Amino acid sequence: MKGAEWYQADDVAEEYEDKRFSRGGRLIDQREKAAVMRALSPLEGKRVLEIACGTGRFTAMLASEGADIVGLDISEAMLQQGRTKAQRLGVDDHLEFMRGDAARLPFPDDHFDAVFAMRFFHLADTPASFLAEMARVSKSQVFFDTFNRFSTRSLYNALLPMGSRLYSETEVYRLLDGAGLQLEGSEHDFVLPYGFYRKIPDGVAQAFRTVDSAIGRTPLGRPLASVSYWDVRVA
């Protein structure tokens, strides 16, 4: 995984949410949470696995909505942040955090109703093997996001010290076929890359987001989108 040592550092875990979801980054957090909720609902009694759960911002949210959820991550520092968040929200008895490798999931086949991963596949060295593991342990649904190759993300990507993996739609469809998954639905968003929003204040970010969303509703929205959300089913 790209940047694995950096990701597991204690100071990175402590500052992770403040750096990414403060200022204009709050709009990203809201949009991602809405995408996850829309895809996975209804959640009451649903058994869910989150891959690369990080600090538990999705894990705790889904537990509060009635999901029986496991959050798996490679970073113990990130998991500890998630446990603290779950305790603060009073949902720590509805979820479990585990340290583990997404390439070798410690669960039997068809163990979960749904498996999802956010902010994961852009760091994946072998996305096909990760997606196959997600499909293996899911009875039905897999949900994930990708950063898109032919978008403004490619410009921002050049500035990142460790880069990230970008995907074309053709590549995503090839990955789905290889994992035995069928596309149920997809959403495409953010003409402007995430990094731009994180650098500007809330009020300014909201103005740009209004324009960004308006473009997204036009025929140009899909080809220009920097992020895609994929809702798929086990064949």
Rank of each mutant, 00 (worst) to 15 (best):
L105A: 00
L105Y: 01
P106Q: 01
P106M: 01
P106R: 01
P106I: 00
P108C: 04
D109F: 07
D109P: 10
D110R: 11
D110V: 08
D110M: 05
H111E: 11
H111T: 09
F112R: 04
F112L: 03
D113N: 12
D113W: 09
A114I: 02
A114G: 02
V115E: 01
V115L: 00
F116S: 00
F116R: 01
F116Y: 10
A117E: 04
A117N: 03
R119P: 03
R119Q: 12
F120L: 14
H122E: 15
H122T: 13
H122K: 12
H122G: 10
A124H: 11
A124F: 13
D125K: 15
P127T: 07
P127N: 07
P127E: 08
P127S: 04
P127K: 07
A128R: 14
A128H: 10
A128D: 14
A128K: 13
A128M: 09
S129R: 14
S129N: 12
S129W: 07
S129Y: 07
F130D: 12
F130K: 06
L131F: 02
L131W: 08
L131G: 07
A132M: 08
A132G: 08
A132C: 12
A132L: 09
A132T: 13
A132P: 00
E133D: 10
E133P: 13
E133Q: 14
E133M: 11
M134G: 14
M134I: 06
A135P: 02
A135K: 06
A135Y: 10
A135N: 04
A135I: 05
A135G: 02
R136S: 05
V137L: 06
V137F: 02
V137T: 01
S138N: 05
S138D: 07
S138H: 04
S138I: 09
S140F: 11
S140P: 01
S140N: 13
Q141D: 13
Q141V: 12
V142L: 03
V142Q: 00
V142Y: 01
V142K: 00
F143Q: 00
D145V: 03
D145N: 11
D145M: 02
T146K: 01
T146N: 04
T146D: 03
T146L: 09
T146W: 02
T146M: 04
T146Q: 07
T146E: 05
F147G: 09
N148P: 02
N148G: 06
R149M: 08
R149V: 05
S151F: 04
S151A: 10
S151Y: 07
